[in-house]
Write a protein that binds this DNA or RNA. Structure first.
Lengths: 339, 339
DNA sequence: TTGAAAGCGCTAACAT
DNA sequence: ATGTTAGCGCTTTCAA
């Protein structure tokens, strides 16, 4: 039996068997020493742990997952990782996952439903479930996905699926009340992508609240929610002679602020501007933006918690968790100009 | 043999065996149909794929990983997911990972070295390697980590490890030249955390460039790189009577801008302000910030590429990839005030 | 071209 | 309290 010369390079990771051999016990004992401390002699356990430490052994999550069918991993899919709006959701999800001892896998769907579906299919067998933030997948695809995996939606609702959503009904009413209190009798909504679930909820809420107040609303757009789209939106607002504009989100709103500034239009003197999201930067743009804040970090955390509940007990309670919003009043809104 | 009644709830995911049975072939044939198309009859293959599709079968990455020892997964650890500075790195890494057909696992170290080490240990057995962004781990811990896993650092260097770093030497010289061209003969550096590798590189570069130019530099701080620390930094700058301040990063710089604004100090009339990172928001704060942009998205992508190379071939080339920086001149810098 | 069988690292019966 | 064994889903020799 010629001894095989060990290959050069990175040392092989030691396995449970290496530890067992070295410690003079069975592999199952090593396993128990790690996962079921009470069912192994204290002395044995100490010895095993010592050997494991010496060998730099750490249990392989992969092997565990294969055996148990549970990976202690959850996937979070967002439309665009770079978009600061999702930072809060990601952070919250990461925090909740870490607290639960679970690994978070992050996926970027590139705002592209097929990419989203592909990711779900690819990652599905390896994770315990999905948190889908602002999913663009059609209801039917969501239903299929939820048949094979626990799924929790964030800021999107779909029949039979659990979700965490912002309370846009109350939030939009707050916005409208705020504008009304400044004497605005009408405003423009600069809308975002038509497929955006949040977007349509916002629009519905604004309309309802405006109607209650006897205010006039006009919808413009759709605009791609990017800084650069602000120019077109701002120009449309000026064209309409509006005294106030509520934008699909802060990204667009800041673009609008910028354009208005360039065109010498005073904010809020001539036009008041409101956004959604309280995104990073909304408090230090000029003027600071009045915006409806969502508790995105909470949303991410609660979504993961809900998901784990759903994954571990098989209690499929497809409830909707509605998180309060908060109107942050800053410098971009003021009294309606007269005339 | 009593037939076991299927349990209620989520349907079981079908396995390679289900497909094999249903298709009337061996499991190995199904396996080949997916991974080694040429080594199976075209007709058989078509049939197998059809059955697989019908059963909604997708190969389990977990089982594959266990067998092959490769998970096609890489981990990216960042100090703070929420920090917009890291968005670019994350995006780039995600893009490169997706392009390589690899899954990205994201971890937040909370700027806490022990958390970072714990994550490396926990994730190690399940991933093909680590990209550590702005790692705070001591060199010794990095060395140990790199023994068991391929590791690539971003904006951090450590003996024997591959890394992707920004060209701060050139970048800082650009900053200094820019200030000098405006007639500044001295400036203040508002420093960040002493453990920050980037921070010390920046300081070293600024000093060297200032020295070349015969300019005077003073270091203040350390300041925690948050908006709120800007107040203290700004006050220190005013106390020193400086005509220009270069800040550890944009977060701090924007905090400084804000404080200067509150105190009625004109920027750049009275004081010029420079940041690092060209973070999201740096172009729409007031005034827009002159800052040294790093190619963070590239850095993330190149780090992943390097990592995969290192993981797949065992060619351990611990080189440093130096990415160019670019000075973005905006409104926060101008001629030095006289007197 | 295909099938049978072994084994990746680990856990969970079951046996002792 | 500990060892033995089977098996998670897949890939990979090795035979046929």
């Amino acid at each position: 039996m010629a001894q095989v010369t060990p290959p050069p390079g990175r040392p092989r990771r030691s396995t449970i068997n290496d530890v067992a051999r070295e410690a003079g016990v069975a592999a199952s004992t090593v396993s128990r020493a790690f996962t079921n401390p009470d069912r192994v002699n204290q002395v044995t356990r100490a010895h095993v742990l010592e050997v494991a430490e010496r060998l730099g052994y750490a249990p392989s999550p992969t092997a565990r997952a294969l055996e148990s069918g549970r990976s202690d991993t959850v996937a979070l899919l967002v439309p665009d990782i770079t978009n600061p709006y999702f930072s809060g959701t990601i952070k919250g999800a990461e925090r909740a996952a870490a607290a639960a001892g679970v690994t978070l896998v992050l996926g970027d769907t590139q705002e592209h439903p097929p990419t989203e579906e592909k990711l779900v299919r690819r990652l599905g067998p390896a994770v315990d479930g999905f948190v889908l933030a602002a999913s663009r997948m059609p209801d039917e695809a969501l239903r299929r996905a939820a048949e094979l995996n626990p799924v929790v939606l964030v800021n999107r609702a779909s029949p039979g699926l659990a979700c965490v959503v912002a309370d846009f009904d109350t939030g939009t009413r707050q916005i409208v009340d705020h504008l009304a209190s400044f004497g605005h009798t009408s405003f423009v909504f600069a809308g975002g992508p038509p497929e955006s679930w949040s977007g349509s909820r916002r629009w519905v809420g604004l309309q309802a609240a405006a109607h209650e107040r006897g205010m006039d609303v006009q919808r413009h757009g759709p605009y791609v929610p990017m800084l650069s789209s602000g120019a077109a939106a701002a120009d449309a607002v000026l064209g309409a002679g509006a005294t106030a504009v509520v934008c699909h989100n802060d990204m667009l709103a800041i673009g609008v602020l910028r354009r208005l500034g360039e065109r010498g239009v005073a904010v809020p003197g001539d036009v008041s501007v409101v956004g959604f999201d309280d995104m990073f930067g909304s408090d230090f743009c000029t003027p600071p933006l009045t915006t409806l804040a969502e508790r995105t970090e909470d949303a991410g955390a609660r979504a993961v918690d809900t998901l784990l509940l759903q994954a571990r007990q098989r209690s499929a309670e497809p409830g909707a968790l509605v998180l309060p919003t908060q109107l942050r009043v800053r410098g971009s809104t003021g009294p309606a100009r007269v005339g």
